[in-house]
């Protein structure tokens, strides 16, 4: 039995397909692609499949992950090809990697996610980049806490967003280098529009806490930002795009005593290499970094 982690992107009209329907979509796609997936026991066996972090309806993504268990597997490249042959427009498989046998699920490892937030085609940005930069500074760097009130069905909860935002900055999506650094797979899929005369396309880059224990939705931060600056918050004029999902770099992503010890050793080696090269050991690793390509 092999553990496999799959990364895919979701864009275009597929942003209207909700999380549960994406799971159904992949269950069928896995069968169409002939992936040798494992099933649970019992009278109604289901595929052994678990998704990392649900994506809200309307949001596009370059970094969606799910794990499956298979009996046997072709190479990563051939498997990606087989899956992409049966995809619809708007979903592409980017990675197909093998995980250690005792790997923890993607869902249990998720700790952070990167997002881009930008104005949709046809909407004009209320500020230019330098104005936004100033506003972000006032909102994020200058505030020691960012308290918002969350309304649930039963009560109101006060919540401090500050510790949940790991990074917030303004970027110009017009700059190819920025898109490259952010690892945007296909810039044309962001659907930024063809108003190429404009010298800049401002966007927020956010790295936020994500996961089953603490979780913050990017739209919540955007709303708090707008309220702080007395700007009107028009949820529908912003496109949110998820770039990547991360695990904590120092969390051991496997179970079992022996395996954990082995990984611990590996981690220490990596840290040493970083030190030797004068680099900082990263705080986060992408979920995909934890797997290896099957040749």
């Amino acid at each position: 039995m092999l553990n496999i982690r799959i990364k895919f992107q979701k864009y275009g009209v597929m942003r209207f397909i909700g999380h549960l329907d994406m799971m159904r979509y992949f269950q069928k796609a896995i069968r169409r692609a002939g992936i040798d997936i494992a099933y649970s026991e019992g009278f109604s066996p289901h595929q052994i499949m678990s998704f990392a972090a649900p994506l809200g309806v309307g949001i596009t993504s370059d970094g969606e992950y799910f794990d499956i268990e298979v009996h046997s597997s072709l190479s990563s490249q051939a498997s990606i090809q087989a899956l992409n042959d049966v995809m619809v427009e708007g979903v592409s498989v980017l990675e197909y990697k093998r995980l250690p046998n005792t790997a923890k699920t993607a869902m249990s490892l998720v700790t952070a996610a990167d997002y881009l937030i930008y104005m949709k085609k046809g909407y004009t940005s209320p500020c230019d980049i330098s104005q936004f930069e100033k506003k972000v500074h006032e909102f994020y760097e200058n505030q020691s806490e960012i308290v918002i009130t969350k309304h649930t069905k039963k009560r109101e909860i006060k919540m401090d967003l500050k510790p949940l935002i790991y990074e917030m900055k303004v970027v110009n999506l017009k700059e190819t280098q920025i898109l490259h650094d952010l690892n945007v797979k296909n810039p044309q899929l962001l659907d930024l529009g063809s108003e190429s005369e404009q010298p800049e396309i401002p966007a927020f880059f956010l790295r936020v806490c994500t996961g089953s224990s603490d979780n913050v939705k990017p739209e919540l931060i955007l709303e708090a930002f707008c309220r702080f600056h007395n700007m009107s918050y028009e949820a529908l004029s912003y496109q949110i795009h998820r770039l990547e999902v991360y695990a904590k770099a120092d969390e051991i992503p496997v179970k079992g005593e022996k395996e954990r010890a082995k990984y611990q050793k590996y981690l220490e080696e990596q840290e040493k290499i970083c030190q030797q090269n004068g680099r900082e050991f990263p705080k986060f690793l992408t979920l995909g970094d934890l797997g290896e390509i099957i040749n």
Binding site: Y11, F16, A29, R32, G90, L189, L236
Partner: peptide
């Protein structure tokens, strides 16, 4: 990319927008 007849404002405010976007397998 496929263009839709309905804009995001509409699609994100109705139940089950997937009813109206097409693009299904086959």
């Amino acid at each position: 990319m496929r263009k839709l007849a309905l804009n995001d404002e509409i699609l994100l405010n109705v139940q089950k927008p997937a009813r109206y976007i097409g693009n299904e397998v086959n």
